[in-house]
Each structure stands twice: as structure tokens, then as C-alpha cells.
Amino acid sequence: MFLYYKAPEPRPGDDRTTDLIRWAAFTCVLVPVVLLWYGASLAGAAGTALGLAAVTAVCRVLLRRSERCAVRLLADEPAPEAHHRGHRQRTGTGSRRGGRHSGGNSPVG
């Protein structure tokens, strides 16, 4: 007898960034509740909630912006070449790899 697990179909908008933001929003609520539970003042817990909410909002904006930039860069990237040279093959006559090389017999200085 075999049991098969079928992963749920991804919904539009579901991605790692969305999950991360959801967890951050959850902690924005959880942390002040825990602070109140352990005897912190209401003003301190509210200030913590506002600070966490502000940090979460800024992180969300930055994450979405980086996603848009990454998509744009991938769209602008040319297709890879059909023939790829190995890393040990030279690309042209007299090509040199790495290190410092002076040009011909000129003094190094």
C-alpha cells in the first residue's frame, strides 16, 4: 500500500516573500502580546508593535522592489550561447589568465 502526497497547487501571489511578510505580521502581533503577558507596560508593548510594523513595511517594500529588479534583469539578459568553452581553453591567441603580467619586455614599476 502506497500513500501519495500531492502538494497543493500554488496560488497567484503565493511565494516566499509573501510567506515571509505573513510571518513578520504575525510577530508584530505576537511580540506585544508576550510583552504584556510578562508585565511590560501597555505603552511599551504598543511602541514595540509600531516599531515592528514599520520595519516589516520597509522590508516588504524592499523585497518587492528587489523582485521587480530581478525580473527586469532576467528579461533583459541575452540567451546563453550554444557553444560553451571549457574553463581551461583559451579564448584567443596569446590570452593570459590571472596574475600580473607586464607587457612584453617593459620594466615593471
Rank of each mutant, 00 (worst) to 15 (best):
P32W: 01
D15P: 05
A53F: 01
L52C: 05
L42C: 11
W37G: 13
T18G: 10
L35Q: 05
W37I: 11
A45D: 02
D15W: 01
W37E: 13
T48H: 05
V33P: 05
R22Y: 10
A49T: 01
V29K: 10
V33N: 14
L50W: 02
A53E: 05
V33W: 09
T48E: 06
L30G: 11
W23F: 13
A45E: 04
V55Q: 06
V55Y: 04
V31P: 02
A46L: 10
L20E: 10
V34P: 06
T48S: 11
V34S: 10
C59S: 14
V34A: 08
L50H: 03
W23K: 12
V55M: 06
A25W: 03
D19Y: 14
V58T: 07
A45V: 00
V55F: 09
T48K: 05
V33Y: 07
G47R: 00
T18M: 10
V55S: 09
G51I: 00
V33M: 13
A40Q: 03
G51N: 07
F26V: 09
A53R: 07
C28V: 05
A57M: 04
V31C: 04
G47A: 03
R22L: 13
D19C: 15
L52E: 08
I21M: 12
G39H: 01
V58Q: 07
A25G: 11
W23C: 11
R22W: 08
A54G: 02
V55W: 07
A24D: 12
V29L: 11
L20G: 15
L30Q: 07
V34K: 05
W23Q: 14
A46Y: 04
D19M: 13
T56R: 05
F26L: 11
L50I: 04
A53P: 07
T17S: 15
S41L: 00
R16D: 12
A25P: 09
L20A: 15
I21Q: 09
V34G: 08
L52A: 08
R22N: 14
D15V: 05
C28L: 04
A40S: 11
S41A: 03
A49H: 02
G51Y: 04
P32T: 02
A46E: 01
I21P: 08
V31R: 06
A54K: 03
D19L: 14
Y38H: 13
I21S: 10
A49V: 04
V31E: 04
L52R: 08
A49P: 01
F26K: 14
G51M: 06
R22F: 10
A43K: 14
A40E: 06
L50V: 06
D19S: 13
T17N: 14
V29W: 08
G39I: 01
A54N: 01
P32R: 06
V31F: 07
R22V: 10
W23D: 14
L42K: 15
I21N: 09
L36G: 03
L36T: 00
S41P: 03
A54R: 03
A45S: 06
V33R: 15
I21K: 08
G51E: 00
V34R: 07
D14N: 13
Y38K: 15
A24I: 12
G44V: 02
G44T: 06
A49N: 00
T27D: 12
S41I: 00
A54F: 03
